[in-house]
Design a protein around this nucleic acid. Sequence first.
DNA 1: CACTAATATTAGCGTACTCTAATATAGGGG
DNA 2: CCCCTATATTAGAGTACGCTAATATTAGTG
Lengths: 124, 124
Amino acid sequence: MAEQISDGDAPRSSPGRPSCCGEAEHPLTDRELAADIRTLAAVGNETRYEALRLIAEAEDGACGCELEPALGVSQGAVSQALSRLYAAGLLARRKDGRWRYYSVTPRAERLLDVLDETRSHDDD
Amino acid sequence: MAEQISDGDAPRSSPGRPSCCGEAEHPLTDRELAADIRTLAAVGNETRYEALRLIAEAEDGACGCELEPALGVSQGAVSQALSRLYAAGLLARRKDGRWRYYSVTPRAERLLDVLDETRSHDDD
DNA sequence: CACTAATATTAGCGTACTCTAATATAGGGG
DNA sequence: CCCCTATATTAGAGTACGCTAATATTAGTG
């Protein structure tokens, strides 16, 4: 895609420059990157983050109908939120009669722990 | 608007119901919740997450100009990304001449560690 | 077998997000 | 002093997001 369009005389950086502006790399594959972002984007939303916190507090998991009043959004929105958290690997679920019980995965648990342990209180 | 138009005898849930649909609560204040979401939403984006990973790999921090080619977005976008990560408490920064060097905070470091340690590989 | 409750799915609307391009600020160097 | 590099800021455009409302599906219950 035609990088370096101009001719050779354009001095983008003199040879005597400091160590700045070299190459930078990280060790993640595209799949790992995508998985991480899916996870983070899933919790980076008020409704979903609160849902995750509520489920983490419940002993044996929680069903959608428990969360609906606390979250203050419609039933459809709760269902969408839980599905997305599940797809992101943050919730496990089991069917029991006409209810579906959600519980947090180890990944979610550790994520919440880190947030609790590193939260800055003069932050605002 | 006109919820429950019918009379009061409507049995919304029989008395013998299981423990479902009670109250749910979590122990976070509004400020803590907002801070967490600001943090999570900041990393839940490809450009910013990759920037954070790149900076975490660099030994003594990285400046914006190092990241720009790797991130593949404009200079303005890089600056916006770094500012937002900084505001979210995930980056520290120091001025050095005409450069500004960014490094990850403990909060960011631990967040990345958890993602590495709990990432599922059959996830797709 | 209706009836009801819990959940899932879909369309559509309003908003927030993220980029580019342009411009402004700040700090060296010839 | 002018120029060049690194960074910050802003407006605007295109897109993605998150909700509601409506409807479909699934599973108990009288």
